[in-house]
């Protein structure tokens, strides 16, 4: 049976991991390769690296980091941040990234999704969507939730799927950082609407939140950052709990 995936997300800047990593036995908490290797040993199914300060000048540093991760790590990984052109994506593919995630560049120019899917296949293209609930409905936001758009989240995701997105990474800005659980209602609505995999993001605070998101929304994967980095949730224990709750996981 296809297993549900557990995905730690790492923020990187200038090729180094930043913020909130607090493993006990790390020699270098800023080394993305060591962190990625640790997570793969703990049973993470996949990794997401978010380049939070991506610029053209620093592209080479990011590529070197991607290569170093691909050399050492035996599970798939996605890299996002600052990808707005085909050549950015191609360089990341050749450096060993399994997938790329795009966000605001696709909102600004939706054809980018078609171009990436045609050039590298739908499996390579993850569409990241930051969404916030407003009185009129759910709306796409840019710049980490700071800038609202007039694009309805549901419409955007359907459009992105038809343009060739291979997977949706949906972050609820209402839940992000609250540790109050994933937005299971919205995630179920989105998951029922598309025929591509959906990754839940935003709100993970404890193990029960992961059990709930899989049971209530049936998404394909759940992503979190700080709860893993600070060791508040240990992946082997989380997976054992998921299994006890009859959720298919790779152990």
């Amino acid at each position: 049976m296809l297993s549900k995936r557990i995905i730690p997300c790492l923020d990187v800047k200038d090729g180094r991991t930043v913020k909130g990593v607090n493993f006990v036995d790390l020699r270098d908490a800023g080394d993305p390769v060591e962190l990625a290797w640790q997570y793969s040993q703990q049973g993470a199914d996949e990794l997401v690296f978010l380049d939070i300060a991506a610029t053209h000048e620093k592209r080479k540093t990011t590529l070197d980091m991607v290569k170093a991760v691909a050399r050492q790590v035996n599970i798939p990984f996605t890299i996002g941040g600052g990808i707005s052109e085909l050549k950015d994506a191609e360089a990341l593919l050749n450096a060993g990234a399994d997938k790329i995630s795009i966000n605001s560049a696709a909102v600004r120019r939706p054809e980018l999704i078609n171009e990436l899917a045609n050039a590298f296949g739908v499996q390579f293209v993850v569409l990241a969507v930051d969404t916030k609930h407003l009185p009129q409905g759910d709306f796409v936001h840019l710049n980490g939730g700071r800038i609202p758009t007039e694009i309805q989240t549901q419409h955007w995701i359907k459009e992105a799927e038809s343009r060739g997105a291979g997977e949706i990474l949906l972050t609820s800005m209402d839940k992000d950082g609250t540790k109050s659980g994933f937005d299971n209602i919205l995630l179920k609505e989105i998951n029922d609407m598309v025929t591509i995999p959906v990754i839940a993001s935003g709100g993970a605070g404890n193990e029960q939140d992961f059990i709930d998101v899989f049971q209530k929304s049936d998404v394909d994967a759940a992503l979190a950052a700080s709860v893993f980095h600070y060791g508040e949730i240990l992946i082997p224990k989380l997976k054992a709990l998921l299994k006890q709750n009859n959720i298919a996981v790779r152990i």
């Binding site: 049976m1 296809l2 297993s3 995936r5 199914d45 739908v122 499996q123 291979g166 997977e167 029922d192 598309v194 025929t195 591509i196 995999p197 394909d220 994967a221 790779r250």
Partner: peptide
């Protein structure tokens, strides 16, 4: 064959 119960691509870890 595309069915809503089984997403395509088949992506992830399977036995």
């Amino acid at each position: 064959k595309e069915e809503i119960s089984h997403k395509v691509p088949h992506m992830g870890w399977n036995q």
